[in-house]
């Protein structure tokens, strides 16, 4: 295993891709997965349950200071930032939204990059704002591996276009290609 953790960020237009990815994650995956998705503030329980029903691995919204375990998918709770505090612990924050986003993909990715460094795999999917660009840049800076969805393959291109314009991701892939990559983890 080349990676110690996987972070996935997505916003508008990423839902179908997320479903595919969660379905095909290996059931014996030995690393934690952090999922940071923009969503409506009030849409809460239904969303978590829907994803949990689909995912091949247990999926949960973590409590603050939740212990990180391998093979678990941690979904950033609505209206909170999710940070990786250290290799054992998740931290939540109610700091102001960044790029109009809480949870912020930039915060989640950057905090994971600092902890897992070159052992982090980050995937950025379709979205309608520029959140995620700073996150991909942070993962690159710490030597992690970054995949950005090909904008021509995105339902909404803004987020991935921004990331590609301002950073150099390791690979720019379509959803089928990202799925193939992830299924080999």
């Amino acid at each position: 295993m080349k990676h110690d953790a996987l972070v996935i960020g997505g916003s508008a237009g990423s839902f179908r891709a997320i479903i595919h990815l969660l379905e095909i994650l290996a059931i014996d995956l030995s690393i934690p997965v952090f999922l940071c998705l923009h969503r409506l503030k009030q849409a809460r329980k239904g969303f978590e349950e829907t994803l949990a029903n689909i995912a091949s691995l247990p999926l949960m919204e973590p409590f603050d200071k939740e212990k990180i375990k391998p093979g678990i998918i941690y979904l950033a709770p609505a209206n909170y930032h999710m940070l990786i505090e250290n290799k054992r612990t998740i931290a939540l924050s109610t700091e102001d939204p960044i790029q109009y986003s809480r949870p912020s993909i930039d915060i989640c990715f950057a905090s994971a990059a600092e902890i897992y460094k070159q052992r982090l795999l980050a995937i950025l999917l379709s979205g309608a704002n520029q959140d995620g660009t700073g996150g991909i840049a942070a993962v690159n800076r710490h030597g992690g591996y970054t995949l950005v969805q090909d904008p021509t393959d995105c339902e909404i291109t803004t987020m991935c276009e921004s990331a590609i314009k301002l950073t150099i991701p390791n690979q720019i892939l379509t959803i089928p290609e990202i799925i193939e990559f992830v299924s080999l983890l």
Partner: peptide
């Protein structure tokens, strides 16, 4: 204080 949060602030 929580390290990450203090650092961000």
């Amino acid at each position: 204080y929580s390290d990450k949060s203090l650092k961000r602030r």
